[in-house]
């Protein structure tokens, strides 16, 4: 593999967890639920996937348990923000903390343990031989899944009735309610999808990307996924493209090491880039007036409309 192809392959691989988590968050936010707990759900998912895979020797069970863990955590957030209509920001932060805590609790005796049966790279015949673009087809199964999910989730969101319902609930829950869409059910559903995908994103880190347990392996990627959600204008397809930018920066950080730059400084690159990206994007967004879902972060009370 030449340098560019290798770089692209690494970039795609590094961007998968951010993409998966952002896809989930796009659904949650499209329905009006801001879930800042992505980092926590990822961390918990990573630990649980690692733990179950290590002991059951079955990756599928590991991945599934990570999804369930993410889902259960997001259920807490759903309860707080949908049912009791409380503060979504605080609840999301709390979720982040709980997830990180659970992650380190589960992983307490696993630090440094390698995973024997991790997800390996599957080369797709013919496609992987295409120059440069072949890099997209020398990936592990979860990355392929992320391509497919992007397409499916994009299709559902923009081309089906369910997608219209989701966007209605986020943009104008009152109107959705009055035509008989169950606002709470849609919001719960989307929040749970967010949780499942965040859990899966975490699992990717621990069973595919670096199949050795490292404490704090999410390292802020959940927060970057949140930034990517905004960056993608809540569109799964743009999230795919955007994730390569963020993933590329992450890889660049390693590629620049031969230049004798300080590793701690290089490690700040993805975070710096995230801030710069959000700032640049918002210049454009203010100019073009692309908005977030109108009811993002606002609970829906049916009887509030009175007066």
């Amino acid at each position: 593999m030449d340098y560019i192809t290798e770089f692209i392959a690494m970039m795609v691989s590094a961007s998968t967890p951010i993409l998966l988590a952002a896809l989930g968050e796009i659904y949650a936010e499209r329905s009006g639920i801001l879930n800042l707990g992505v980092e926590g759900m990822m961390a918990a998912g990573a630990a649980i996937a690692f733990y179950t895979t290590l002991f059951t020797r079955n990756i599928v069970i590991g991945l599934l348990s990570a999804c369930i863990a993410g889902m259960l955590l997001s259920l807490i957030h759903g309860f707080i923000s949908i049912t009791i209509k409380s503060n979504q920001i605080v609840s999301g932060l709390a979720l982040s903390m709980i997830g990180l805590g659970i992650s380190s609790l589960i992983g307490r005796n696993l630090v440094g343990t390698p995973l024997r049966n991790s997800l390996g790279i599957v080369e797709i015949a013919i496609l992987s031989d295409i120059p440069i673009l072949g890099a997209f087809f020398r990936q592990n199964t979860l990355t392929y899944l992320s391509y497919i999910l992007t397409a499916i989730l994009w299709y559902i969101l923009f081309k089906t009735k369910i997608g219209i319902a989701i966007r209605m609930v986020g943009d104008n829950p009152k109107s959705a309610d009055s035509i008989g869409i169950n606002v709470y059910a849609v919001r719960y559903g989307c929040t749970l999808i967010g949780g499942v995908l965040a859990g899966l994103a975490g699992a990717y880190l621990s069973v595919a990307y670096t199949p050795t347990w490292i404490e704090g392996m999410t390292a802020g990627q959940g927060w970057i996924a949140l930034a990517l959600t905004v960056f993608s204008a809540w569109n799964p397809f743009y999230a795919l493209i955007g994730s390569y930018l963020f993933g590329g920066i992450r890889i660049l950080q390693f590629r620049l090491q031969p230049l004798k730059l300080s590793p701690p400084l290089l490690s700040t690159l993805p975070y710096l880039f995230t801030i710069v990206a959000l700032a640049l994007l918002n210049i454009e967004r203010i100019r073009r007036r692309i908005g977030a879902p109108q009811y993002l972060g606002k609970p829906y009370h049916r009887e509030e409309a009175w007066m």
């Binding site: 009735k161 219209i164 943009d171 109107s175 009055s178 035509i179 169950n182 109108q294």
Partner: peptide, 29 residues
């Protein structure tokens, strides 16, 4: 939902449409 199932429809005073969607999308549900 219950009202609609009974065959009750309502035209609100101020249109409750989703502004960012097309007419067809608003009617699709």
């Amino acid at each position: 939902r219950d009202a609609i199932r009974l065959g009750i429809g309502r035209v609100p005073q101020i249109p409750e449409l989703v502004e960012s969607l097309t007419v067809a999308e608003n009617l699709a549900m």
